[in-house]
Design a protein around this nucleic acid. Sequence first.
RNA 1: GUGGGCGUAGCUCAAAGGUAGAGCACUUGACUGUGGCUCAAGUGGUUGGGGGUUCGAGUCCCCUCGUCCACCCCA
Length: 422
Amino acid sequence: MLYQRPRGVNDILPEEVGRWQQAEATFRDLCRVYNYEEIRTPIFEQTDLFVRTVGENTDIVSKEMYTFEDRGGRSLTLRAEGTAPTIRAYLENHLQGQDPERLVKLYYLSPIFRYDRPQAGRYRQHHQVGAEAIGSPRPEVDAEIIQLSLTFFERLGLEEVTLLLNSVGCQQCRPQYVSALQEFVQPHLHQMCEDCQRRYETNPLRLLDCKNETCRQIMQQAPSMLDMLCDECATHFDRLQQTLDLLGIDYTIDPQIVRGLDYYTKTAFEFMAPGLGAQDSIGGGGRYDELIEQCGGPPTPAVGVGIGLERVLIAQQVAGAVEEVQPRQGVFVVTIGEQAWPEGLKLLTKLRAVGLKAEIDYRQRSVRAQLRYADSEGYQWAAILGEDELKQQSVTLRDMVSGQQESLPQSELITRLQVEDE
RNA sequence: GUGGGCGUAGCUCAAAGGUAGAGCACUUGACUGUGGCUCAAGUGGUUGGGGGUUCGAGUCCCCUCGUCCACCCCA
């Protein structure tokens, strides 16, 4: 074998593609019901789009992007996440129209590229479905996005998904919190891990979710963002919880949820599924009220979610929510002898022309071999053509489940199969 | 980016320096025009790739690629 696929990427094979299509169709249908419209943006963007929105000091930007220069010397980056390109397209194509407060609801299905060390549930190309609601500051819209996501998981048979909820504040209150946090950490900094010493400067919020034992002990006493939210953020968070309660959605408040992208404000949430090992987050999102203005648009509040399809499919498997058995379908044309072969080809063509799945054995093997193949490939019918049938202009139709067969005129075969098909 | 486990037939796995094997799958036959069960035979391998040690390497050493796990991070 001369070639193999690049590290950390997957081929999705015919036997598994049905599960992908099912998940995709489920998401599309939910989006239709929730009134989100599909948007498709390019597979690469100007590098700056990601750098400036996701944040220069995030892991995604500092070490995980697939960045390259095109022949014109432009720096481009493969889609590293879904929100920034969607917002770029929203602004560039004036989707907000004449009404600056119009609520624009978009969804996407897209590959995402991140250069990271692969392991189970983590790949260099993965696929996300996502939804963005742009133009409303209301917490009810946050709840809608969360509800849409949870319904998606539920429809795919994932019953033990948990929702972790937090608020990360806004321009008003977060800087104060960050200073408070730094002030708290400062005296302990020398005992903390290298990463945290770096985070202290570059991304202090991430100090909160360090897994290092010593760091965790120290951070347990740290002030909580939730205690320092400004009035607006606190009210928003309260009302989001009230709405979730109203809609019967369970959640756990977790002040550790920070999210790895800098643009989040107020609401941040994450969905966890059991059985995925270290990579147990199957989706996440939040509000990003400052992002659109930062991209050069008018101040526009928005909220969104991104869900990892690979992980959802793994979680489905772990949960035993995978139903495999495909119903039998189609006709296998069995020909016996040289005379029957051309008639078989003609019959095959007619069957296909009316939309029936039909196949023939181009190797013209024994009846035995043809029937065995028809059986193992899951055909519902065998249409047998041999000398006897040719003489009578008939065909022998065999039911591959019951084994019963009958002789009928060739002219009636198609109508007969179409009736059976219903 | 760091540390560790593993790469042998299409698949799941044996072979502890001495002839590369089994089960399943596949093909053919028993059954000269009938699948599933049974039985028999057969096809199938540069042991991930490259280099080295050795009379001799799937096995030991080095490099490399891939994969899995943990860290990190995320979906």
